[in-house]
């Protein structure tokens, strides 16, 4: 057991700090396992429709700007780095650094959402949001098949975006908590757990980016 955790408060149900840390870490990983399966259903739908409607998916994905997707990928990867540094600062008990790095992460997450907002509004303007107003004209491509691409695009990136928002809210709460408890040793467990969550959000995007923006053979 590292010396850093000896003075952390221990919940009444636990025997010691080590058991508490073990339990929280295992609990968070289990939660991430449920997240994997949560997104898993959508990935399965993607695989099925992608293999059925290959040509329509290739045609439809040209409506997405891979540069914006790529930019967002870089933004999220960078935010993962800043979050990892926030966790590191928490472990070595530097509360100001933790808040600083989390603020960076928060700003980057905000950038991600802003880019996403512009992407989404462009799709709405071009009648590419699925529904009665959906219009997609491309010679030889069934518009219904192309609409499936956008169904999945909005479902998967929308769900991912919701996770980004939840992450941002978590960071605000953690920062306030850290500030309020600034005179104590930094309780790094919540920061560590938020970090795990944030890296998972990054991880999902790592798969979403090629699936939607880089559909085979540009």
């Amino acid at each position: 057991m590292s010396t850093h955790e000896t003075d952390l408060p221990v919940g009444h149900q636990f025997e010691d700090a080590e058991q508490q840390l073990d339990a929280y870490s295992a609990g968070m990983w289990l939660f991430l396992v449920t997240e994997v399966l949560f997104f898993g259903g959508l990935f399965l739908a993607y695989i099925i429709y992608r293999t059925r409607y290959t040509e329509a998916f290739v045609a439809a994905h040209h409506e997405l700007d891979w540069r914006l997707g790529g930019l967002n990928t870089l933004v999220l990867i960078t935010s993962s780095l800043t979050m990892a540094l926030a966790v590191r600062a928490a472990v070595i008990d530097r509360w100001k650094q933790v808040i600083g790095w989390m603020a960076c992460t928060f700003v980057l997450a905000g950038c991600f959402m802003v880019v996403k907002y512009f992407e989404y509004s462009a799709k709405f303007e071009h009648h590419l949001f699925p529904g009665p107003n959906f219009q997609f004209h491309h010679p030889g491509i069934d518009s219904g098949e192309a609409q499936m691409f956008f169904n999945l695009y909005f479902a998967m990136t929308g769900l991912h975006g919701a996770h980004v928002l939840i992450g941002m809210i978590t960071m605000i709460i953690l920062a306030i908590r850290l500030y309020v408890m600034r005179n104590q040793r930094v309780d790094f467990i919540p920061v560590e757990l938020a970090g795990l969550y944030w890296h998972f959000v990054d991880l999902v995007w790592i798969f979403l980016f090629p699936l939607f923006y880089l559909v085979g053979g540009n």
């Binding site: 396992v33 449920t34 997240e35 994997v36 399966l37 949560f38 997104f39 898993g40 259903g41 959508l42 739908a45 429709y49 699925p130 529904g131 009665p132 499936m148 169904n151 999945l152 909005f154 479902a155 769900l159």
Partner: peptide
């Protein structure tokens, strides 16, 4: 391992019904 899958499935039904994002 199972519940998240039905969660996403039911969510998709709601979204298909509400927003016409149909899978």
């Amino acid at each position: 391992l199972g519940t998240p899958v039905v969660a996403i499935t039911l969510l998709l039904v709601a979204v298909e019904r509400g927003l016409r994002i149909g899978i």
